[in-house]
Design a binder for these strands. Structure first.
Lengths: 336, 336
DNA sequence: CTGTTAGCGCTTTCAT
DNA sequence: ATGAAAGCGCTAACAG
């Protein structure tokens, strides 16, 4: 079942069917309808491989993701998918596993398949990849911090600011010996750390010993373990600013297990505002980024760039919201 | 940069380079090494579109998933990816969004691209899809209940049994008025429900009014809302068997908010054994399925079928484990 | 607006 | 073990 089969039935040439399917304007409306009906009726589906080979464009948009198992990234992905599927593009995921070398390799593979575009989700291209992308073989959109090094358009938030505001909020509530906890540092980690450091320094209470990392990926379990490390490291710690909500939830559970009262004895702030953050007892203070929208807008940007109706290097700050919930509502004034 | 470019440099014909890359045995070892070195050095990457067109095989394995945002499915996916990537196959995800029509359409598209294989993750082919697949255009592996209708090999668990054992455990602990809660019923829902019903009937306490559903997707938030519905519907309810851990966690949080003691006043059982289940306070009783292994084994099965070293319709029961944790450890005997 | 010609980069088949 | 020829199904470029 090929293009020629359809063409023969309709009584036109193959290229006309091809055009009817791809460039509506270049076939008379009447003929086009007839062709579309026949295609439908015969159940013809174009061979994407042949199309890609002939046109040097696979019609696929590559999504470069550092992992496929982080809920926040999936929300972004869903937004992208919703927009992209409706517009006829295919999607190809490349999982870099937080590894620079894997990214280089996968991007190289993707580029060899002549993608229509590349979207970096939660990870900015760097090193060799960045250099390779500068030759702009196709449009690039990055979902990352707005200050990231970039190879194309960027949409995201000001991470340092979000992090600084969250830390500042804890300080305002009277917490002083606040630990910073993070799993394997990567991607946005540095900026979140900077925001924390800036806020702590401004308040005159910064101590590098309070920054605690672990090589394991973030999880609720890691959060639990972190609390014990915090108590070992900072004898009278009174709070934790967590890289994400999973860590925050783990710390909350461990506090409950040990009988540490949250927020009176210990304040907890997360990041992402996952489903459970508002529902936990006590509810978790956290930063919300409009992830689904972020995905949609990134996809829209990509489509506009491909269609040539947008520039190749816009920067969009989509903003964030700090939710000040129970886990940081210490009921006694600062310092008492 | 094409095959011929490499061939010219090495001083052989294109087809020899092609063979060196794909069928080691058909090129002399010495020549093969020389070719591989040159390929490496020139940075040649095969054009997958051309390869697919010429060979009528895209070298891609399609993963049909009902959603991309459920953590349990992602664990399976990771297992599949880990195995498949090492073996030279590409992966193409198709998100059916829990919709039969979308599945039909996506499977049709996938098949048109001549995939090397199709893996159904957490959703069994049905209706038109099942019929289409019976013609066996490529190997099929399903990760689903072992009793599912099938178009190829199956690997999974006996869901009814798992569910029956979990419910039975709650009954053994003295809970009697146990609600069944589930989001939009689909896929494995029916079997989990059957297991629950069988256990409740065996104990002589089954009441269809205790089965509570909601059209919204499962989430912690939905769990919270469910608890309120349970209390409205079953005045003296003393437990809930949840379709998954998110619902269980939501119910736990809501119990805490309302001052209902778990497990003394109310027992909670989840399903999946996510990260947080063992860490929650109290920890959650739940059923663990070895999801990552499931993914790995499914991928292995697929590779074996493709290589012709396994049959096209094996059925593997990978088993499950019931973790009896605090959320169902009622400290008073049954009926008192 | 429609058609003709040529060829995308690779692999198949058949030959040597 | 290696090569030559043919063609996979489609679209770009150029006619008309």
């Amino acid at each position: 079942m090929t293009l020629s089969d359809v063409a023969r039935v309709v009584g036109v040439s193959a290229i006309t069917v091809s055009r009817a399917l791809r460039v509506p304007g270049r076939v008379s409306p009447e003929l086009r309808n007839r062709i579309l009906e026949t295609v439908e009726q015969m159940g013809y589906v174009p061979d994407l491989a042949a199309r890609a080979l002939a046109s040097r464009d696979s019609g696929v948009i590559g999504l470069i993701m550092p992992t496929l198992t982080h809920v926040p990234l999936l929300d972004i992905m869903t937004g992208i998918e919703d927009r992209l599927c409706g517009s006829g593009f295919g999607i190809q995921y490349a999982n870099t596993r937080f590894d620079q070398a894997t990214m280089e390799q996968k991007v190289r593979m993707l580029l060899a398949q002549r993608p229509s575009g590349l979207i970096f989700v939660g990870v900015a291209p760097a090193g060799e990849t960045l250099a390779r992308l500068r030759h702009a073989p196709c449009p690039i959109v990055q979902i990352s911090d707005v200050s990231s090094e970039r190879a194309g358009s960027v949409i995201g938030i000001d991470t340092e600011l979000a992090s600084r505001m969250a830390t500042r909020h804890m300080l305002d509530k009277g917490y002083r010996r606040i630990a910073l906890v993070d799993g394997r540092p990567r991607g946005g980690s540095l900026l979140r750390r900077e925001g924390y450091e800036n806020a702590m320094r401004d308040a005159g209470v910064y101590d590098p010993a309070w920054e605690i990392f672990d090589d394991a990926p973030s999880s609720v379990g890691l959060g639990s373990r972190f609390l014990r490390r915090i108590l070992d490291t900072i004898p009278d710690a009174d709070g934790a600013f967590c890289h994400n909500d999973d860590l925050a939830l783990g710390i909350l559970f461990e506090c409950q297990r040990l009988g540490i009262r949250v927020p009176q004895d210990f304040g907890i702030c997360g990041f992402n505002d996952l489903d459970y953050a508002a529902l936990a007892q006590p509810s978790l203070t956290t930063v919300r980024v409009p992830r689904y929208d972020l995905g949609e807008q990134a996809a829209d940007m990509m489509i506009r760039v491909i269609r040539g109706t947008a520039s190749r290097d816009e920067v969009v700050d989509i903003g964030f919201t700090l939710f000040e919930r129970q886990s940081t509502q210490r009921d006694r004034p600062a310092g008492t």
